[in-house]
Design a protein around this nucleic acid. Structure first.
Lengths: 147, 147
DNA sequence: TCTTGACCTCAACTTAGCTTTAGATTGCAC
DNA sequence: GTGCAATCTAAAGCTAAGTTGAGGTCAAGA
């Protein structure tokens, strides 16, 4: 029968995930994907790489950098297709990160509420912006300070 | 009496906010700060610029880009020192943004929970990663898709 | 006066996360 | 076998948010 092929091309992976072909090559370069090659040197991906790319996208939305995402993906088995169980473990870890993020935002919000009361928005008085927070909730921000 | 000076230097602003001098100049270049100059061409800032910089830092933590922060700051009066009331208005707007962020994260979390149940983490099945979300919760992610 | 630290400008460099471009294959369809 | 889209590599370009460096000026104290 004409069942689905075992491997998919870069173009297929791109259209299935909505990610540009160039971005997929870039992810490979960064070590997030490890496609095989055809005899003609074209990349061939496992079907499970669709899920892998989905994971990359979701994790990015949560603010993880590609390097951090790579770390998470290291927990997936090399070579063989990850099982449902493999993905569950990794998902649970992500849930913890979301929890943490929500907590930080909630704290920030209540601090801001206090500031709305007094209208101060000042570093000294509010503690809304202090060094500890700085390390917690990350964003761009001046670099020197982050070191 | 020796009351506090009306203006502060760039170095003072830097040490009061914890932001590098180079970053402050950069913010000025981007239009986020509009210091006056001394006869010797050195920048002189209003004391209220400390608050302004604090705001920039806080807003960055919430994921706003400098351009967006500039938009918010446009709501502050030019020239005169912002009043407590001015800051309150702007703070309330920020609170709304935090609320929205928390909402999005909460939604993402519950979707992820469903995925943990099935272990799928797939685009089609879970809807954890769809285009609507993509616009909502922003992050890096492939550019083409964002257009 | 001299020196020293804070300040000035302008240009180039940095990191992350990609996209774009150019020129060379590959592979499928007719 | 001819054509055309999809793929390949390598290098350059882009945006955000700054930092770094070179070379010059300002201001205040000894």
């Amino acid at each position: 029968m004409l069942g689905p092929e075992k491997f998919i091309s870069i173009g297929q992976l791109a259209s299935r995930t909505g990610v540009a072909v160039s971005a997929i090559r870039f992810y490979e370069e960064k070590g997030l994907l490890q496609p095989l090659r055809t005899s003609g040197n074209q990349r061939k991906f496992l079907r499970s790489d669709i899920r892998r790319v989905s994971f990359i996208l979701i994790a990015q939305k949560l603010g993880l950098a590609l390097a951090e995402i790579e770390d998470q993906l290291k927990n997936l088995p090399e070579g063989r297709n990850p099982t449902q169980h493999d993905w569950q473990k990794i998902s649970r870890r992500m849930r913890a990160q979301i929890d943490e993020k929500i907590l930080l935002l909630t704290r920030t919000r209540s601090q801001l509420d206090q500031c709305i009361g007094c209208g101060c928005l000042s570093l000294q008085k509010c503690q809304l912006y202090n060094k500890d927070d700085r390390l917690g909730l990350k964003g761009p921000g001046p670099r020197a300070v982050l070191d």
